Computed example of a mutant assay.
Amino acid sequence: MKQTSVVDDVTRAAVELFASQGYANTSVQQVVEAAGVTKGALYHYFQSKDDLLFGIYERLLSLQTEHLTAIVERGAPTAETLRAVCVDVVETSVDHLLEGTVFFRSAHMLSAPRQQEVTQRRRAYHDTFAGLIEAGQAEGLYRTDVPVAVLVAHFFSDLHYLSHWYKPEGPEDKTVLANQLTDLFLVSISAASAGSAAPVRPHAAAAVEG
Rank of each mutant, 00 (worst) to 15 (best):
K2Q: 08
A41N: 09
A70W: 01
A205R: 14
A34S: 13
Q120K: 15
T128K: 11
V85K: 03
L42D: 03
R83D: 11
E117N: 09
Q115M: 14
S111Q: 12
P147V: 02
T144P: 04
R105K: 12
A13R: 05
Y166M: 01
V208R: 06
S190A: 15
T128N: 05
L177Y: 09
S48M: 06
F46S: 05
L132E: 03
K167Q: 14
F54D: 10
H96G: 01
D8R: 12
H164W: 08
T144H: 08
V10G: 06
P199L: 06
D173M: 03
F18P: 02
A191I: 01
L141M: 08
T101G: 06
T101M: 12
G210C: 11
Y125D: 03
V94S: 02
L186D: 05
F46Q: 03
F54L: 15
H96C: 08
L159P: 10
V94H: 02
S193K: 09
H164Y: 10
T92W: 05
H67S: 12
S27F: 00
Y23K: 00
A194E: 12
Y57D: 00
T4P: 01
G136P: 04
S190I: 07
V89G: 04
R121Q: 12
Q21M: 10
M109A: 14
T92C: 09
E58M: 03
M109L: 15
L60Q: 10
S106I: 00
P168C: 06
E139I: 06
T144A: 11
K167Y: 03
V152M: 04
I71L: 14
R114F: 05
T119H: 13
S163Q: 06
L53G: 01
Q115F: 07
A204R: 14
H160I: 12
V200R: 13
V32Y: 06
G170Y: 01
Y43D: 00
G195C: 07
F18Y: 14
G136F: 06
L17R: 08
H203F: 08
K39Y: 08
S163F: 11
S193V: 01
